[in-house]
Amino acid sequence: CQNWHISQDRVPTRYISPDVLVTIALRERSVGIAFTYTEPLIWFEYVVDVAKIGRTRGLKMVAVSNGYINPEPLEELLPYIDAFNIDLKSMNPDVYRRFIGGRLEPVLETIKMASRKTLVEVTYLIIPTVNDSEEEIRKLVDFIAEVNPKIPLHLSRYYPAYKFDVPPTPPKTLLDAYKIARQTLPYVYIGNLPIAGTENTYCPECGNLLVERQGFSATMPGITPDGKCSKCGRPVDIIL
């Protein structure tokens, strides 16, 4: 994990109550609160408490998670989450057992359940020799297409960190995976490696550039004020 130091370092912490956290977000004029980096499902009760208060006060709630959660608590959480980014590590159950000590199936079920209730995006870190085969990429794409082909898929480049020293993902591997995914899915992006055009969003109908991204900056040259493609008029699959 490129953020491995978060779990390995010991840093000073302090408790902030859910109500105070929401108040801080409002004071800072934030659009919402994102539960991320540290796995939010570990502190499930706190996330639910914050999300309930935040939603009633007009804030958006986002969770970035490994998706490893039982159906009952997930059902409790979903009504208060506006967007869910789920890290899918592999489509191979053996990879989950070997590297994570977990199971693949609960994560797939989380993606299915969450996609029925809220906006879901999937991130797939491509690691050479682990989950980068064409067969596995096609399994990934087929799964997402079956759940909801409009789910955005982020294909991220791996870099060696902490105890894993496999060389970084070759750019060609990412591009090949991107091309395979784009044959079926309209919203596919490459992350952790700037490759021209692969961060942008295009209209599935006519190919018009809807959203242009560079790093953390984004413009929407192809979206009309009423949320349609400026070229063909198709309503965009974007929450504005």
Rank of each mutant, 00 (worst) to 15 (best):
I180H: 04
T169D: 01
P160Q: 00
A145T: 10
E146A: 14
A181E: 04
Y158F: 14
V141M: 09
P171F: 06
A177D: 03
K150M: 14
Q183L: 14
I137Q: 05
T123F: 06
D176A: 14
E121A: 11
Y158P: 03
S156V: 06
T184N: 13
I180M: 14
E121D: 09
P160S: 02
A181Y: 06
F143P: 05
L153P: 01
P168N: 03
I137Y: 02
K172H: 15
H154T: 10
I126V: 09
K163G: 13
T184L: 13
R138G: 06
D176M: 12
K172A: 15
E134N: 13
V141A: 06
V147W: 04
I151G: 09
L155I: 02
P170W: 00
A177L: 07
I144T: 03
V147N: 07
D132N: 05
P168K: 08
R157S: 02
D165K: 15
L174W: 04
H154M: 11
D165V: 15
P149R: 12
P168V: 05
L153S: 08
S156N: 05
P170I: 00
L153Q: 10
I180R: 09
I144F: 05
L185I: 02
V166N: 01
A161F: 10
P152I: 11
R182A: 13
Y158V: 03
L140A: 07
H154R: 11
R157P: 05
P128A: 03
T184M: 13
P167A: 11
S133W: 03
A161N: 10
K163F: 13
L185C: 02
T169N: 00
E146M: 11
T173G: 01
A161G: 08
I126G: 01
L155F: 01
T184D: 12
P170M: 07
D165S: 15
L125Q: 08
R157M: 02
S133E: 03
I144S: 09
K163S: 14
L140V: 00
P168I: 04
A145C: 07
S156R: 08
I144A: 06
V122S: 08
E136V: 05
V147Y: 00
D132V: 00
L175Y: 12
V122C: 09
E135A: 14
Y124T: 09
P167G: 10
A145N: 11
I126A: 06
L155R: 01
N131F: 08
S133T: 13
